[in-house]
């Protein structure tokens, strides 16, 4: 039987580090990396709860909860991979146009 609390705290810490990175980093590549951290924090919680439910005996309900966590983790990983692909493409496009990957300088949306 797994105690989920320390793992969840770890996930929360990871999430906050990611959020800090997203908000405070100026480099687009680093922001993307921080974003990955946040996604993986979410993944950890999903896997933790999957494990938690699996450890409570295999009846139909617990079985479903356990599998949901597993599936969602896989889903998030797939989406994250796609997102990194698109994100990197955008970063490359922005870099080509502006010759810098500073996020604070791009304020065209305002106008």
């Amino acid at each position: 039987m797994l105690d989920p609390q320390p793992v969840l705290l770890l996930a929360a810490a990871l999430f906050c580090i990611g959020l800090y990175g997203v908000l405070c980093r100026t480099n687009l590549v680093l922001i993307l990396m921080a974003l990955e951290l946040m996604l993986n924090a979410a993944n950890i919680t999903l896997v933790t709860f999957s494990r938690y439910w699996a450890g409570r005996g295999l009846n139909a309900e617990n079985f479903t909860h356990a599998h949901t966590g597993q599936f969602f983790t896989l889903m998030v990983m797939a989406v994250a991979a796609a997102e990194v692909g698109v994100g990197l493409a955008i970063i490359v496009a922005v870099f080509r146009r502006r010759h810098a990957s500073e996020v604070g300088a791009a304020t065209e949306l305002k106008n």
Binding site: V103, G104, E108, L109, K110
Partner: peptide
């Protein structure tokens, strides 16, 4: 409120 800076929006979002 509308600065055009993505990080400000993200901060508000968080």
């Amino acid at each position: 409120v509308q600065t055009g800076n993505v990080r400000h929006y993200l901060f508000a979002f968080a």
